[in-house]
Simulated scan of single mutants.
Amino acid sequence: MKNISFIIIFGFFIILICLLLMLVILIQSPKKESIHQSFMEKNFRFFGIKRTNTFLEKITWILSILIFFLILSFNFLLKSKHLRN
């Protein structure tokens, strides 16, 4: 019974981090300059957009690494539960 609660918790965290990762990726502005960016005023670019992009890129890497390790541990948890039965 204890392993089932861990499986549910790991599954919940994996789904939550996937949703956060999708949200962070959708928020990021593209690297290439688009038509919309060419019409932006140059003064608007100095209000921290560059820092926000680097912050969002770091969050993307952190969430990606976190989801990788959560999936690995979830796999080991499932294998250990399967071997005990």
Score class of each variant (00 low, 15 high):
C18Q: 14
I35Y: 09
N3H: 13
V24K: 04
L19N: 09
S73E: 03
F74W: 03
F13T: 02
S38N: 08
I14F: 07
I17K: 04
H82A: 12
K42M: 06
I25A: 12
F55V: 08
N43D: 11
L20E: 04
F69L: 05
Q28T: 07
S34Q: 05
M1A: 14
I9E: 14
F39H: 09
H36N: 06
E33V: 10
F69P: 00
L16N: 07
R84Y: 12
E33N: 08
N85V: 07
P30S: 03
L70D: 01
I25P: 00
L78Y: 05
L56I: 05
K31E: 08
L23H: 13
L16W: 13
S64L: 02
L19E: 10
R45F: 11
Q37R: 03
P30C: 02
S38T: 09
L56C: 06
I14S: 06
Q37V: 00
I27Y: 12
I71L: 06
F74A: 03
K32P: 01
F44V: 15
K42P: 04
T60G: 00
C18M: 14
S80R: 10
F46Y: 08
R45E: 09
F69H: 01
R45W: 11
F12N: 10
H36D: 07
F74H: 03
F10T: 06
I8F: 15
I17F: 15
E57K: 11
H36R: 09
F10Q: 04
G11W: 05
L83H: 07
N75W: 13
L70P: 00
